[in-house]
Amino acid sequence: MWGLIHKLGSPKWFYQLSATLQPWCWGAAALLLLTGTLWGLVFAPADYQQGNSFRIIYVHVPAAFLAQSVFVFMAGAGLIHLVWKIKMADMAAAAMAPLGAAMTFVALFSGAVWGVPTWGTWWIWDARLTSMLILLFLYIGVIALRGAFARRDSGARAASVLAMVGVINIPIIKYSVDWWYTLHQPASFTLTSRPAMPVSMWLPLLIMVAGFYCFFIALTLMRTRSEILRREAHTQWVQTLVKESR
């Protein structure tokens, strides 16, 4: 176990490993996303209440899942970076942050679009959407803090601390927003909360969620690899790599 962690901590080793992993992740992502999209948009039955507009769920829910879990991954990487001083973890965190923010934005935007047929308005202070909006601000904070430091190493450490502070706060924020919501709008309709979804509806959703995760992993690997090249540009192995590719 420790050997694996230390191997993963070596940028060169990670670079080589990710080279073999990457095509598989892209393949799986393409396959899953294609299946899920076709199934969800074409073959799944329409909702008895919302009609076809419910199909936004196949983008909204996976994006929302990812938006939240990416923050947790990022904080985990931050912890590894701070405690064991493994710079590889920080490169991964730096690669993940904009992806997580983008997923949060997708979840927010799809929620807003969904709001038009459902509530007749683009924005409603729904508990989930509100939490998602706050999450977006948390992401922007982490990204901005990293960028604000002149020295990259300090920015990396500061971003790691903030990500960990954020991840402790996310459940608290979620809980308090839910409390606030029930206090102000006790009986209103919430997106995606439904008593029972038939298999033909949730199975494609599951596939889409898996597809989003694969897509995210593939993209993170790709971005981490370019971050490795950027940071390790002065090392022997990167320079030979560049020479070979010429």
């Binding site: 706050i134 601000f137 948390l138 922007i140 904070g141 901005a144 803090l145 604000a148 903030l162 502070v165 954020g166 706060n169 608290i172 924020i173 809980y175 308090s176 927003v177 409390w179 606030w180």
Partner: peptide
């Protein structure tokens, strides 16, 4: 300004209660 960007989202639970 960055400080307010970092801190305000974390203040939301306190504000709500």
């Amino acid at each position: 300004v960055l400080l307010s960007l970092l801190v305000l989202p974390l203040y939301i639970p306190v504000l709500i209660f």
